[in-house]
Design a protein around this nucleic acid. Structure first.
Lengths: 228, 228
DNA sequence: CCCATATATGACAATACCGTGAAAATATTG
DNA sequence: CAATATTTTCACGGTATTGTCATATATGGG
């Protein structure tokens, strides 16, 4: 799957220039005219990075960035801001921490690509295809899961759930966070459904004495903790 | 099937010289005038190697190479770059990792062929090799398949599908990935068609007790795993 | 020790996914 | 062009998976 970039830009010609530039360089491009539309598109599919104009009708680029930063799912999404010359000096400083890079208009496509590429390299390393803890081993390549070397059977949803938990060991997830990450945002399922799937995972791990790795955090949700 | 080479060159006389050179030496040749056309042709059929001119109208050779490198399907396609004398020193260095070899114009056909052959040999080109696992043996030269030494009959699509799977043992492919690799990207066929071909492959392997090598990965797709 | 709240668990109906045969469409061969 | 082989689509049925609910059990505060 190609790297996907979300472009948020209200001026049609600039938006099209951006689309063309990224498409030509092999990215998947999603475009939005406003920050509001951008948020919708993000809910449908999380992009790998966002290029957003500073000036937008309605919610502006800074507001969008702030909002994305506040949201746990998008908190570390790389954001590149487009600004007109003269704006950057004062205003951007007031929001130093929020964006990852900015480019002043007019910009050259070449420069934009170089920045974006550098940013992606910086923020998203190559994905590891083995997750291991406490003898549980997820092979993301073959979609196999083994416990102490023995392959075990697991259903797709349980697999994804376990993957999310094991990618973040010792981190407590709220049910809603797990729903977002495993089920996606566009589907609505009851929060209690998470409990049922945790139960099923524990049943699978129990014969190997590893059900204690899936811990309940009362009042919050669940957590994966490796045991020895 | 012969090794196929995609030539990307806008100057007609050079393009024809290249075509003639490779055809005479027994290669299948696909030609494209621009990088954009080249991408289309690649979508139709993935070549074994690409010879591309540095200077092209529209997307240039470097951009093409970059894009191919980024795409998982073409990431390790051997690329030979043609450059005019004097260009190579500075610019090519800035893109050292992306191409596999380059040749300065004017070049002798003899030298070009030698380089291409060396590159194909180096990158494990499809010259005279076999894929074998669990007694299933694909002879990529003669397009034959034998199981425990006995030649068996198989249709072209089944062959290609089995080849893709056996080239990547233990890797789970989504149906869409198999469609890209076996059918090409530009054709549209239903994802479920993959199922039918997997069914046929299993029927072929079943009498030899090898149908278990083709495993269903529920919710994802399929996987080849050698059994002993 | 009891209550209020949160989580665990088993059961069940709905659903999604896959295998399969067969017909229709397409390509290949003589 | 006819005959044959291959490929694609479709639809049906079986089965694993999934979401929800009802009920049981646990937890922690007062």
């Amino acid at each position: 799957m190609a790297t996907s970039i979300l472009i948020v830009e209200d001026e049609q010609d600039i938006r099209e220039l951006l689309e063309f530039t990224f498409l030509r360089d092999g990215y998947d491009v999603i475009a939005a005219e406003t920050a509001e539309i951008a948020l919708q598109k993000i809910d449908i599919k999380l992009p790998d990075m966002i290029v957003v104009d500073w000036m937008l009708p309605g919610m502006d680029g800074i507001d969008l960035a702030k909002r994305l930063r506040r949201d746990e799912l998008t908190a570390d999404l790389p954001i590149v801001m487009l600004t007109a010359r003269g704006e950057e000096a004062d205003k951007l400083k007031s929001f130093a921490g929020g964006i990852d890079d900015y480019i002043t208009k007019p910009f050259s496509p070449r420069e934009l690509l170089a920045r974006v590429k550098a940013l992606l390299r910086r923020s998203g390393g190559p994905k590891n295809n083995l997750i291991e803890a406490s003898g549980i081993c997820l092979d993301l390549n073959s979609y196999r899961i083994t416990i102490n070397g023995n392959e075990i059977q697991i259903s797709p949803t349980e697999y994804k759930l376990l993957e999310v938990l094991m990618r973040n060991p010792d981190r407590a997830f709220e049910r809603s966070q797990l729903l977002d990450r495993v089920w996606g945002r566009q589907v609505y399922v009851e929060e209690r459904t998470v409990d049922v799937h945790m139960l099923r995972l524990r049943k699978i791990l129990k014969p190997h004495g590893l059900d204690a790795t899936l811990q309940t955090v009362r009042g919050i949700g669940y957590r994966f903790t490796s045991v020895s």
